[in-house]
Simulated assay, not measured.
Amino acid sequence: MRFEILPGLPPYGPPAISLTARGEREFREGLVVRFYPNDSDPWIGNFVGGIFDYTTVLDHPNGRDVIVVARGDTCIIDPEHHAIRDRIASDTARAIGVPALGLVVFQGSVDFSAVRSDNLRWNSPQISWDGFRKINVQETMLTGEA
């Protein structure tokens, strides 16, 4: 296991590292994740997140980094250096792993984006005015309604 979602900020031990879009320390609880790096001690990150409902944590296709979606705010975390490596989106409604292509697709409010195992990113143009429904992924094909 490379990470675990905690029920809240722990009352003991080293303080959580606050990782926010603004880069400032936040003193409120968000999505709390404990990371287990290969070459250093475990540490805890606190992700306040955005304004959307979707939250998840998943392995990056590169096998080193971790993808954190906290209330729609999506970033790539480097667990070894306790840092945000990259920001993907602020409006993620769903993250979909596509192992056949070695990537993760992110459904936004009006578009899609993806990140591959080599960190190459792709962003679609705006596809919808009001979101999506019936999104389905089968092997390498993504279908749905806009």
Score class of each variant (00 low, 15 high):
Val48Asp: 01
Gly131Trp: 08
Gly102Leu: 13
Val105Lys: 03
Gly49Asp: 06
Asn62Leu: 10
Asn62Phe: 08
Asp118Ala: 11
Asn136Tyr: 09
Cys75Ile: 08
Asn38Asp: 09
Ser128Cys: 09
Asp59Gln: 10
Asn38Gly: 00
Val68Asn: 03
Ala114Lys: 04
Leu101Gly: 03
Gln126Trp: 14
Ala89Thr: 14
Cys75Gln: 06
Arg71Thr: 08
Asp130Ser: 13
Leu58Thr: 12
Trp43Arg: 04
Ala95Met: 07
Val48Leu: 12
Arg64Phe: 15
Ala100Asn: 06
Ser124Gly: 03
Val66Met: 05
Phe52Ile: 07
Ser109Trp: 12
Arg94Gln: 15
Asp86Phe: 08
Arg133Gln: 15
Ala93Tyr: 12
Glu80Cys: 05
Ser109Ala: 14
Thr92Gly: 08
Ile67Asn: 00
Pro37Trp: 06
Ile88Met: 12
His81Ile: 03
Asp39His: 13
Arg71Phe: 10
Ser90Arg: 14
Phe132Leu: 04
Ala83Gly: 00
Asp39Val: 02
Asp73Met: 09
Gln107Pro: 01
Ala95Pro: 04
Asn62Ala: 07
Phe132Trp: 05
Phe47Pro: 02
Trp122Asn: 00
Ile51Gln: 11
Phe106Ile: 07
Val69Phe: 04
Arg94Pro: 02
Tyr36Phe: 15
Val48Tyr: 05
Phe52Pro: 00
Arg87Glu: 11
Ile76Tyr: 04
Asp41Phe: 12
Asn123Lys: 14
Pro125Cys: 03
Ile127Gln: 11
Val69Cys: 11
Ile76Phe: 04
Trp122Glu: 11
Phe52Val: 03
Val105Leu: 14
Arg85Asn: 02
Asp86Thr: 07
Val110Asn: 06
Thr92Arg: 06
Gly50Arg: 03
Phe132Ala: 01
Asp86Val: 00
Val69Ala: 04
His82Pro: 02
Ile44Met: 02
Leu103Lys: 14
Ile77Asn: 01
Leu58His: 05
Asp41Val: 12
Gln138Thr: 14
Ser117Tyr: 10
Val69Pro: 02
Gly45Ser: 05
Arg133Pro: 00
Arg121Lys: 13
Val57Ile: 12
Lys134Leu: 11
Glu80Pro: 02
Ser128Arg: 09
Gly49Tyr: 03
His81Pro: 00
Ser40Asp: 13
Phe112Cys: 02
Gly50Met: 05
Asn46Cys: 06
Asp65Lys: 03
Gly63Trp: 10
Leu58Trp: 06
Asp41Met: 12
Pro42Thr: 04
Gly102Met: 10
Pro99Asn: 09
Asp86Pro: 00
Glu139Val: 15
Ser113Ala: 14
Val69His: 05
His82Ser: 09
Ala83Asn: 00
Asp39Lys: 09
Pro99Val: 07
Pro37Ile: 08
Ala114Asn: 06
Gly49Lys: 04
Arg133His: 15
Ser90Pro: 01
Val110Met: 03
Asn123Tyr: 14
Val68Met: 05
Tyr54Cys: 07
Val104Phe: 06
Ile44Leu: 02
Thr55His: 10
Leu101Tyr: 04
Pro37Lys: 08
Ser128Val: 10
Ser113Arg: 12
Phe47Lys: 02
Arg121Asp: 00
Arg71Lys: 15
Thr55Gln: 13
Arg94Lys: 15
Val104Tyr: 05
Arg87Thr: 10
Ile135Gln: 11
Val98Arg: 09
Val105His: 03
Gly102Ser: 14
Thr74Asp: 05
Asn119Met: 13
Val68Arg: 01
Ala95Leu: 09
Val115Ser: 01
Ser117Ile: 05
Ala100Val: 13
Asp78Met: 08
Asp53Met: 12
Ala100Trp: 01
Ile88Thr: 06
Pro37Tyr: 06
Asp118Cys: 11
